[in-house]
Simulated scan of single mutants.
Amino acid sequence: MTRTDKPEAWDERTTLLTMLQYTRDTAAEKCRDLADEHVGAAPLPGSPLMSLGGVVNHLRWVEHSWIENRFVGGPDLGPWTDEEPDREFSLGATTPLAQTLAEYAEQAERTDAIIAGLDLDDRSQTPLRSGEHPTLRWVVLHLIEENSRHNGHLDILRELADGRTGD
């Protein structure tokens, strides 16, 4: 499969879901051929949880939280706790990268299956802090934004790890 941001059709839904998949594929590409010793490295002094494995694991759990938990009202299965609210980052730093990437791909498949049965104007079961129930359109755009921002982090972490750069 070729990583692309060009949708097969130019309607809103296809465009949004193509961009979501592109951001997922970009995260995986940033980790391609990464040496094991770099998976959990956190080279940014102000961000001790920011590792390549941690960021990818975070993306996986953010997608679960927004779609399976908040949007459709399922249980929150995330690894976070009151004592360790960012636990997905520390777990991703110590989990084999192949496993983290596979779990992220599995999460994407679950998300896509759920989204397939919904309309972009459908509203989430769980409200935002403001009390508003966002549309699926907003949640998908939020996931694209979240993935894109963290793909920038993955760019930096990968370059610091072994000098690899790329789009």
Results as ranks from 00 to 15, higher is better:
residue 4 T to M: 05
residue 5 D to I: 06
residue 11 D to V: 01
residue 11 D to F: 01
residue 14 T to W: 03
residue 18 T to C: 04
residue 20 L to A: 10
residue 21 Q to W: 00
residue 21 Q to Y: 00
residue 22 Y to S: 08
residue 27 A to D: 03
residue 28 A to T: 12
residue 34 L to W: 05
residue 36 D to I: 06
residue 37 E to W: 03
residue 37 E to T: 11
residue 38 H to F: 15
residue 40 G to M: 14
residue 41 A to W: 12
residue 43 P to H: 04
residue 43 P to F: 05
residue 44 L to F: 11
residue 47 S to Q: 15
residue 49 L to I: 09
residue 50 M to C: 15
residue 50 M to T: 10
residue 50 M to P: 06
residue 51 S to L: 06
residue 51 S to W: 07
residue 51 S to G: 04
residue 54 G to R: 02
residue 54 G to E: 04
residue 56 V to N: 09
residue 57 N to W: 02
residue 59 L to R: 01
residue 59 L to W: 06
residue 63 E to L: 09
residue 64 H to A: 08
residue 65 S to N: 14
residue 67 I to K: 08
residue 67 I to F: 07
residue 68 E to Q: 14
residue 68 E to P: 09
residue 72 V to T: 15
residue 73 G to H: 10
residue 75 P to M: 13
residue 76 D to V: 05
residue 84 E to K: 11
residue 87 R to D: 12
residue 89 F to N: 06
residue 90 S to L: 10
residue 92 G to E: 03
residue 93 A to P: 08
residue 95 T to V: 08
residue 98 A to S: 14
residue 101 L to R: 02
residue 104 Y to A: 04
residue 104 Y to L: 02
residue 104 Y to F: 09
residue 105 A to W: 00
residue 108 A to F: 00
residue 112 D to W: 11
residue 112 D to F: 13
residue 112 D to A: 15
residue 114 I to E: 12
residue 116 A to P: 10
residue 117 G to V: 03
residue 117 G to R: 01
residue 118 L to M: 05
residue 118 L to N: 02
residue 119 D to S: 15
residue 120 L to D: 03
residue 123 R to Y: 02
residue 125 Q to E: 13
residue 128 L to W: 09
residue 129 R to H: 11
residue 132 E to I: 00
residue 134 P to D: 13
residue 135 T to P: 03
residue 137 R to C: 01
residue 137 R to D: 10
residue 141 L to F: 08
residue 143 L to T: 02
residue 144 I to H: 12
residue 144 I to K: 10
residue 144 I to F: 09
residue 145 E to I: 02
residue 145 E to P: 00
residue 149 R to T: 01
residue 150 H to M: 00
residue 151 N to R: 07
residue 152 G to W: 04
residue 153 H to E: 10
residue 153 H to Y: 07
residue 155 D to Y: 05
residue 156 I to W: 07
residue 156 I to A: 10
residue 157 L to H: 04
residue 157 L to Y: 01
residue 161 A to K: 03
residue 162 D to W: 06
residue 164 R to C: 05
residue 165 T to S: 13
residue 165 T to F: 02
residue 167 D to A: 14
